[in-house]
Design a protein around this nucleic acid. Structure first.
Ligand code: MN
Ligand code: MN
Ligand code: ZN
Ligand code: ZN
Lengths: 139, 139
DNA sequence: TCAATAGTTTAGAACTATTATAATGTAGAA
DNA sequence: TTCTACATTATAATAGTTCTAAACTATTGA
């Protein structure tokens, strides 16, 4: 609503036209102190609450994928019925609570550096991510 | 075909009736020196090649889930359009080749022990898995 | 300023992995 | 052998995601 010029610049400099749908999604994803994890369905709900102008589901998917491609979002590797995305694009790791089906950040400083002593010829490492699955103690 | 008594015992002692479908799937999954990764679709293809008796898709899903529940298979956390399973149930990690969409084991001894210096109250750790995404060097 | 153009949004259909259903079949117990 | 709980099966249903193609719009440059 207020200070969108930042998002407009960011989008334009990424080669993405600053449409009102993209700006709205930027507000929802990035206008917050804390980063968070979300599914497409979560985001659709947030959009509904935040505005009366509907954004089509296809546009939500398109935008999330565009933002991921530009590095403004990360996708979290997890087996689930839906994809999880992360507004925290810094290097960090996750707990996955299998009871609550909830993701919780693990700060990079809380994980000893992961050292991989083997490589694959002709391939370069894109990311190294630790997933810690947790469950209720009485399970 | 030959020495199925081992699988029959294993199934029976797990509380699973040793049906011919389950025995056949055991042969395909466990009659090999090397462990491997597979999708449900991969397994269906292997079954087609291995036998003329068809096994229904529902049974393949049911069996894989039953074996996973009993700890004879692991599911690998990865974002993909389909689930990946692993006949290697020991503690190890993975490369995921994003070009070939291929999983490669990383022996536990090739990864420095992953130390997590934070916990979630009321939760216990079920697994700690490292996923190393790789891609072609010229990407 | 204002068409031309390339990029974007959209509703809805299509796709596809997975799960549910409910009828039929079968292993194991008695 | 008979009974029953468990298992298999074909098929339908579900649901997340992607595709399509028509309508719309931000940007460019004449
Ligand atoms: Mn899935
Ligand atoms: Mn998926
Ligand atoms: Zn995160
Ligand atoms: Zn493996």
């Amino acid at each position: 609503m207020l200070n969108n010029s930042h998002y407009i610049d960011k989008l334009r400099s990424s080669g993405l036209r600053p449409t009102k749908q993209r700006i709205k999604i930027c507000e929802i994803l990035f206008n917050t102190e804390k980063t968070f994890h979300f599914t497409i369905n979560d985001l659709v709900k947030k959009i509904s609450k935040a505005t009366n102008d509907k954004i089509s589901l296809a546009t939500v998917y398109n935008t999330v994928h565009a933002f991921k491609k530009k590095g403004y979002l990360k996708e979290i590797p997890i087996n689930s019925d839906q994809s999880y995305f992360d507004t925290n694009t810094s290097h960090h790791h996750h707990f996955y609570d299998e009871n609550q089906k909830d993701l919780i950040d693990i700060d990079d400083s809380d994980v000893e550096p992961v050292k991989i002593n083997t490589r694959i010829p002709g391939k370069k490492i894109k990311s190294v991510e630790v997933l810690v699955k947790v469950e209720d103690i009485n399970s």
